[in-house]
Design a protein around this nucleic acid. Structure first.
Length: 656
RNA sequence: GCCGGGGUAGCUCAGUCGGCAGAGCAGCUCACUCGUAAUGAGCAGGCCAGGGGUUCGAGUCCCCUCCCCGGCUCCA
């Protein structure tokens, strides 16, 4: 008998096994159910296949499919099966890389003669994958020397490149150092399918969960736009049919909420071809929402002590040379206009203008912090492929502010800003926030190390006091300074990056900004760029998706539709509309001339109007209305008009 | 920008092999006057994204441009 080893389990218990016992056997010894559910395991925190034998004392945790780690294993294994299916169906196909990703997996391929996959191919590939699953091919791990690996994948150039690139700290795709691991799927009537992989994998193909191939897309090899574009197939894979169905349902839900679709349905905005890509016009319905958003923003900024400024849409090249934009972001700017011997550029940012406002007279430390605010419209020549409804446009309006302060004030200013951001975002019904601190980029940045360190530290200090959870994005800062971005989660759990607070030591230097300190000497202020909505367009799109178009009453383009039951109720209905409008609500009458009551109710509901009031004989007599609140399927009859007005007023005031 | 897929009435879409441009909804007119998610009848509505080409003939085939969609890359 082999030497005994002691295995520690996640519940703290310890069991003895003989050396050489496999992880699968350990799972089986714990319980029949676990043995059946197990697809991989962790040994001292490292993932491993179930067939791996253990020859030393260790902590072991069994991975089942219904865990995050389990699903990752399932997805990765499913990607292998897809690669096998593709190489079966498309002889000569090269397979590159195929990881598990959120909700699924993908695999990148290069087909012979530059061929492409089409939608029908996905069905064929999926059918072949199901055959492979039925064949119950085992996943067999093997470790080979680097040279043997290179020989094994001699006709797979992308695999060769991966092996050649493996470095000691690169543990993403294959094993470490000189030994690499491969997985084989033996099969009848052909050589085993073999792929380079770190593993672990499910024991055999029959253990895969339900999956579905979703779409085919181009993707650059190694994410580098100078490298060849490969054919990527995306799939989704889950541990149960119910989980797959849930996922597909979530996708449908996201589609249902798509702001581009709702924007057309509710007549909020459009992108006429005549304007050019990424340039929107706001229709009256969308414009009402935007105006309410902007009015709210202005009122709150005024209350928070901001000074309002305005600036033009273009400026001479000298401004952008001083600011550094022409050096760093000329590609993203609309091209110049030559006039009267000068060169003008549409503005991609508002900051240089605000800097000029600051610099318009000598500042005293007593004035600081100076907070300049503008709903400033900027133009950025985004690459055509990135445009996406109102979420990514070429012309947009930022709720932009630049705050100039003394270095000693920076933490306080940032704290105050974080409070302000959260207040504003909460007012729109968002409740879940996360922050991200971005530090100095490795390339393409300006400024002294000491400045960067000081600014970054100030961000950390400010956020510690805010109660926000945060993560650090190394090297993701702007070229002129580090930043905090605020992300939020919407009604279906999607995460959106919105607000940004950016510290900037560079622009004050470039524009030689000064203030006179208490010591009567000149000092350089620090500047903080910040936008809370980010851009009005983007925030509006997120709002539309968050509420699926059913905006809360204070934002809804139309708050009340009043429907007289028959012509003889028109006068009474009109009095109600009149009163609502006089009290500052957005109400409209739809008379009985053309359509039945049912049809008018239906249309008002489709317009997602918060309240549909129906008035008939009983109401005209009693001074009441029939109230249909959005989201409720049972109408309230005989509600006194005063009560309804009070209710709507409270809802709007409270932004409920 | 790159790869793939698209663009036909306001919207959603059909249009076969190259042979008269279609439907539903929306709109307008008329009738209906109705208590809660589609009353009926009728009428209009088109540079088939734009331009060029092939052809006796192009929504359909070819080329270019614009725009949209899904990804990749990018996002000061």
């Amino acid at each position: 008998m082999a030497d005994p080893i002691t295995i520690k389990l996640p519940d703290g218990s310890e069991r003895e096994y003989s050396s050489g016992t496999t992880l699968g056997e350990i799972a089986a010894s714990i319980g029949k159910g676990l043995a059946k559910a197990a697809i991989a395991a962790k040994v001292d925190g490292e993932r491993a296949d179930l067939e791996r034998p253990i020859d030393h004392d260790a902590s072991v945790a069994i991975i089942t499919a219904d865990s995050d780690e389990g699903r990752e294993v399932l997805r990765h294994s499913t990607a292998h099966v897809m690669a096998q299916a593709v190489t079966d169906l498309f002889p000569g196909a090269k397979y590159a890389i195929g990881p598990a990703i959120e909700d699924g997996f993908y695999y990148d391929f290069e087909l012979p003669d530059g061929a492409h996959f089409n939608e029908d191919d996905l069905e064929r590939i999926e059918a072949r994958m199901r055959e492979i699953v039925q064949a119950d091919q085992p996943f067999e791990r093997e470790e080979v020397e680097r040279d043997a690996g290179l020989a094994l994948f001699a006709d797979q150039p992308y695999k060769v490149e991966i092996i050649e690139r493996v470095e000691p700290d690169d543990s993403t795709e294959v094993g470490e150092g000189e030994v690499i691991s491969v997985y084989r799927n033996p099969r009848d009537g052909a050589d085993p399918f073999v792929d380079l992989c770190r593993g672990p994998h499910v024991p055999s193909t029959k253990r895969l969960g339900p999956f579905k191939l979703m779409k085919v897309a181009g993707a650059y090899w190694r994410g580098d736009e100078r490298r060849p574009m490969l054919q990527r197939i995306y799939g989704t894979a889950w541990d149960s049919k119910a989980a797959l169905a849930d996922h597909l349902h979530r996708l449908e839900e996201a589609e249902r909420r798509d702001h581009r679709k709702i924007g057309t349905e509710l007549d909020l905005f459009s992108f006429p071809d005549e304007l050019g890509a990424g340039l929107a016009i706001w229709h009256p319905n969308g414009a009402i929402v935007r105006r309410v958003m902007e009015d709210f923003s202005r009122a709150e900024h005024e209350r928070a002590g901001y000074d309002f400024v305005f600036s033009p849409h273009i400026a001479r090249s000298t401004l952008w040379e001083t600011s550094g934009h022409l050096d760093f972001y000329a590609d993203g700017m609309y091209p110049p206009m030559e006039l009267e011997g000068a060169t003008y550029y549409p503005k991609p940012m508002n900051c240089p203008f605000h800097i000029l406002v600051y610099r318009s007279h000598l500042r005293s430390y007593r004035e600081l912090p100076v907070r300049l605010f503008e709903l400033g419209t900027v133009y950025r020549f985004e690459r055509s492929g990135v445009l996406h409804g109102l979420l990514r446009v070429r012309g947009m309006t930022q709720d932009d502010s630049h705050i100039f302060c003394e270095p000693t004030q920076i933490v306080d200013v940032l704290r105050e800003l974080l409070d302000f951001v959260l207040f504003i975002l909460r007012a729109f019904g968002f409740t879940e926030f996360e922050a991200e601190i971005s530090t100095r980029p490795k390339e393409k940045s300006i400024g002294a190390d000491a400045d960067w360190e000081m600014a970054t530290q100030a961000l950390f200090d400010a956020i510690e006091g805010s109660g926000l959870s945060y993560e650090v994005a190394e090297g993701e800062g702007a070229f002129y300074g580090p930043k905090i971005d605020i992300h939020l989660r919407d009604a279906i759990g999607r995460r959106w990056q919105l607000s940004t607070l950016q510290v900037d030591f560079q622009e004050p230097q470039r524009f030689e900004l000064e203030y006179v300190g208490a010591d009567n000497e000149r000092h350089q202020p620090i500047m903080i760029h910040r936008a809370l909505f980010g851009s009005i367009e983007r925030f509006f799109a997120i709002l539309v998706e968050h509420y699926a178009g059913a905006l809360p009453s204070w934002l809804a383009p139309k708050q009340v539709t009043v429907l007289p039951v028959a012509d003889r109720h028109d006068a009474y209905a009109f009095r109600i509309v009149d009163r609502l409008n006089a009290e500052g609500f957005r109400a409209e009458l739809v008379d009985a001339a053309a359509d039945s009551l049912g049809a008018r109710v239906r249309r008002a509901k489709q317009e997602k109007v918060p309240y549909v009031l129906v008035v008939g004989d009983e109401d005209a007599d009693a001074g009441s209305v029939g109230v249909n609140a959005r989201g409720s399927d049972k109408p309230e009859r005989g509600v006194p008009v005063d009560d309804f007005v009070a209710r709507l007023a409270a809802e709007v005031t409270e932004r409920a």
